[in-house]
Nucleic acid binder design. Structure first.
Lengths: 215, 215
DNA sequence: GTCTATATACCGATAGAC
DNA sequence: GTCTATCGGTATATAGAC
């Protein structure tokens, strides 16, 4: 045979693992969308700009994602998949959700466009008619619930100082992460001085609540 | 951070009480801009929508503010003036900056569009080429510096627990305020359940750091 | 100070060729 | 699967009448 690893150029099912080219282009478009939203927000990002970054026309993009809102949802779902894998891995190893969130902050410090995009989207999506509003409502409810539950467990294990209230700390932990992301992004825009260390800030906050140091 | 009075923004010397109508219309436009940015962000807000809310045409609006960016700057400066008056008042009465920020959170809970607009602007403006980028860089540096200094003073007065680090708490205090604003806005979009009490959350956080209850 | 009318550019989305 | 061409709409900004 001639070329060995030709992944179905015709765009047909091909039984097991078809649509390789289509899925690769979709992934490229999703990455381009994250960068564009990071720079301009959802309203400001244009399909033409995103398509150009992905190396296709904007009509070609709309073949993969029928509307701009569909594209946005694909970005959000993709992020859930990526983060979910890492968090599940940590939790499977017995790491508490709170500790896993510090790990997430560490990984985020290596993915600036993702943080930029989600920071602006979370702010935009507080308006009820934003296409990502429902997503962030669920996303935040779950994150706060998980953090709260984690603090409850730490409290039950006697690892939290007596005056610490798990019911408040869950929401405040998520709020702190969001606020630190804004400051981290701003610190990257300042040429002098080193960037904010989000994970170190979170570690400090957690240690301040623990009866014994975390590490 | 100019907390003093505006020297006639219309550009001409008001002399003996001139330009009253122009200034009133400018104020109306600024309020309309806040609402529009709150709903759509800066990129998504349109001059036609803003002008319609203020009861003029978009060309009439551009008579007062030559470009969209000029309009944005006017909004930011106006907010500095309004908040500056309240904060200066508190500080003049001997209230610490941290306590004054809790008061600000209380007032913000009665100004949803302002919080919406500034939450989305702060996120958008982390990109260096956003027209509000320079403003927020200064704004955050000042806010963090003031909060840090306030924590230093509390520490020196022996009112902070020994393990509390004033150098970290200033930035974390501002981060917490930002994150709570996002959650407060989201809580307003949920018909069930009562809204998040930002001031109560901050009071809890402060009390957790103090050797003696704050109030 | 505000308007109508317009210039110029870009938007999201569709149609149809290949 | 991707393209070119195009539709209908809206964007910021300007020109000039009143």
């Amino acid at each position: 045979m001639t070329s060995t690893s030709q992944p179905d150029p015709s765009g047909q099912p091909a039984g097991r693992g078809g649509y390789a080219k289509g899925r690769a282009k979709r992934a490229e478009v999703i990455q381009a969308t994250i960068v564009s939203i990071a720079e301009s927000g959802f309203h400001g990002a244009s399909l033409r700009d995103i398509a150009a970054r992905a190396g296709i026309s904007h009509a070609g993009l709309l073949h993969h994602f029928p509307t701009k809102a569909h594209l946005l949802m694909a970005v959000l779902e993709h992020r859930d998949d990526v983060d979910g894998v890492d968090l599940d891995e940590d939790v499977a190893q017995g790491v508490s959700f709170i500790e896993a969130m510090i790990g997430l902050a560490e990984r985020n410090a290596r993915r600036r466009p993702v943080v930029e995009a989600f920071t602006v989207l979370a702010a935009e999506a507080t308006t009820p008619d934003h296409p990502a509003h429902a997503y962030f409502k669920i996303h935040y409810n779950e994150a706060i619930a998980s953090a709260t539950q984690s603090f409850r467990e730490l409290k039950a294990a006697g690892r939290l100082r007596p005056e610490v209230d798990p019911e408040r700390e869950g929401a405040q932990w998520i709020a702190l992460m969001d606020g630190l992301q804004i400051q981290w992004l701003q610190s990257l825009a300042e040429p002098d001085g080193r960037p904010l260390d989000m994970a170190a800030e979170l570690r400090y906050r957690l240690d301040a609540m623990l009866t014994t140091p975390s590490n």
